[in-house]
Every structure is written in C-alpha cells, then in structure tokens.
Simulated scan of single mutants.
Amino acid sequence: MSKITTYSPEIREHAVRMILEHLNESPSEWAAIEAIAPRIDCAAQALRGWIRRHQTDAGQRPGATTEERECIKVL
C-alpha cells in the first residue's frame, strides 16, 4: 500500500518557486521537475500538479482557480 503524504502550503510554494527559477537552466519543464522533486522528497507528478495549479491561479492556464474551487465546494 502506498504512503500518502501531505505537504504544507509553504513547502508547495517553495517547490514551485524552485521550479520557476530553474526553468531557464533546464531543457524542459519536466526535466526541471524531475531534478527538483527528489530534493523535496515528493513525486514528480505531485510537483507537476502544484505547478499546474500555480499556473491556473496566475491566469496562465485555463481552469478554475483555487479560490473558485473553494467557492464551488461551499455551494
């Protein structure tokens, strides 16, 4: 059975910041994610999801923002 780990918002923000800083040094976004994920001790796919959520919240990708998703949950 796999272990489910919950990361604090601070760790997620730090990880996203690290990826954004290393994008210019890496040949692709995925290469940056694979390089950073072991440092944070998280799965690369989890980190990719955090990046996508950040991009959606920043308006760089289509979709409901975190704030909108919270409103939908309340309704």
Rank of each mutant, 00 (worst) to 15 (best):
M1Y: 08
S2V: 13
S2F: 11
S2L: 15
K3E: 09
K3A: 06
K3T: 07
I4H: 10
T5L: 15
T6K: 08
T6M: 09
T6Y: 04
T6R: 09
Y7L: 13
Y7N: 04
Y7F: 15
S8C: 03
S8I: 00
E10N: 04
E10T: 07
E10K: 02
I11D: 06
E13R: 10
E13S: 14
H14K: 13
H14Y: 10
A15D: 03
A15L: 06
A15V: 06
V16Q: 02
V16W: 03
V16M: 05
V16D: 02
V16L: 07
R17F: 03
R17V: 07
I19F: 12
I19H: 03
L20F: 12
E21T: 13
E21F: 09
E21C: 12
H22T: 08
H22G: 04
H22V: 00
L23H: 03
L23D: 07
E25S: 15
S26T: 05
S26H: 11
P27F: 02
P27H: 07
P27W: 00
S28E: 11
S28P: 06
S28A: 13
S28N: 08
E29W: 00
E29P: 01
E29G: 01
E29L: 05
A31Y: 11
A31G: 05
A31E: 11
A32V: 03
I33A: 01
I33Q: 01
E34L: 08
A35V: 10
A35G: 09
A35E: 11
A35T: 10
I36G: 00
A37H: 01
A37K: 00
A37C: 06
A37P: 01
P38L: 13
P38Q: 09
P38V: 08
I40C: 04
D41Q: 15
D41P: 00
C42S: 09
A43F: 02
A43S: 14
A44P: 04
Q45N: 14
Q45P: 00
A46H: 07
L47H: 04
L47V: 09
R48N: 11
R48I: 04
R48K: 11
G49K: 09
G49V: 06
W50H: 02
I51D: 00
I51A: 04
R52E: 13
R52V: 14
R52G: 12
R53C: 14
H54S: 12
Q55P: 00
Q55V: 02
Q55L: 15
T56S: 07
D57R: 01
D57M: 03
A58I: 04
G59K: 00
G59V: 03
G59E: 10
G59C: 03
Q60N: 14
R61P: 01
P62A: 15
P62W: 02
G63Y: 02
A64D: 14
A64Q: 13
A64P: 10
T65S: 11
T65D: 05
T65F: 05
T66L: 11
E67L: 12
E67W: 08
E68Q: 14
E68N: 03
R69Q: 11
E70I: 14
E70H: 07
E70K: 12
I72A: 14
K73M: 15
V74R: 13
V74M: 14
V74E: 06
L75V: 10
